[in-house]
Design a protein around this nucleic acid. Sequence first.
DNA 1: ATAGGATCTCTAGTAACTAGAGCTTCAAGC
DNA 2: GCTTGAAGCTCTAGTTACTAGAGATCCTAT
Lengths: 153, 153
Amino acid sequence: MKKVEYSIGQLGKLTHTKVPTVRYYEEIGLITPVGRSEGGQRRFDQASVRRLGFVRHARELGFTLDAIRQLLGLADRPTASCEPVDGIVQQQLHEVDLRLARLQAIRQELQRMLDECSGGKAGDCRILEVLADHSLCLTEDHDHPDSTTDRQI
Amino acid sequence: MKKVEYSIGQLGKLTHTKVPTVRYYEEIGLITPVGRSEGGQRRFDQASVRRLGFVRHARELGFTLDAIRQLLGLADRPTASCEPVDGIVQQQLHEVDLRLARLQAIRQELQRMLDECSGGKAGDCRILEVLADHSLCLTEDHDHPDSTTDRQI
DNA sequence: ATAGGATCTCTAGTAACTAGAGCTTCAAGC
DNA sequence: GCTTGAAGCTCTAGTTACTAGAGATCCTAT
């Protein structure tokens, strides 16, 4: 069984990751090539594929790169307790729940705005009115964008 | 009835907007002070308050500043048809729906991961396993972060 | 008159990439 | 062995919507 090596492009294909993204992950220390070719091109191995796969999957689930860095650190020490892993995931679930709640409220208001728009001139547009006057909207949870840690997905 | 004027700080309080954010919105052309004081400080009026209120409310609903710029342009021409407004809002609703669907799938997988974790060593951690091996996860819609236009809320 | 809070401008930083310029390396075909 | 074109390299800068800080100036109340 010989060691298979991958170019950055092959690694990218295997993990559905764009090449510049792989380089970016290397830059911030999430993955490291096993070496370089004679001419200086990056070479990766099977472990890189798994590691990058992990990163990508976690990103799909909305984890920040920072959280992923922690998860990777924990995954690297198989004898450690998996409690912190659990904590990170629980935290993420919590944030997803918050975002779901906010999005659902937003969805409702958008839908209502659309329902009320009768399609005339902008001057009479109910949508523009609601947007201009917050008190016309139903949402209670008046959450101000500045304070909202708004992130991805 | 005399014209009331507001400093940037007062405007910020009235609209729950941080002062640097107000300046940023001015920089990108969303709002404009009515003038400046002798000493060069910005002065705003009631119309500024309404306009900034509009921006903030639209941001809460997840519109991009670009969409908001368009909405403001439409709101400024009351005789124009409100059809494009409707279009922008519908588009936004659509995006919110997509995001809700994705978040719900994510929520499910996070929950399942937590349910399966028995709390032992990281080496046996089901969570880390699932993260490392995408094929272990239930989500069908394998959506790759790169291609995801992931934005706020 | 003065103190101290508010405001000014300017630069730089955040997350997680993406895009482009200008150059070099690699692999396949002849 | 040579050529050619895709793929790789580094570096800089751009994206969105702000936020933070430095150092100077203004405004208002005592």
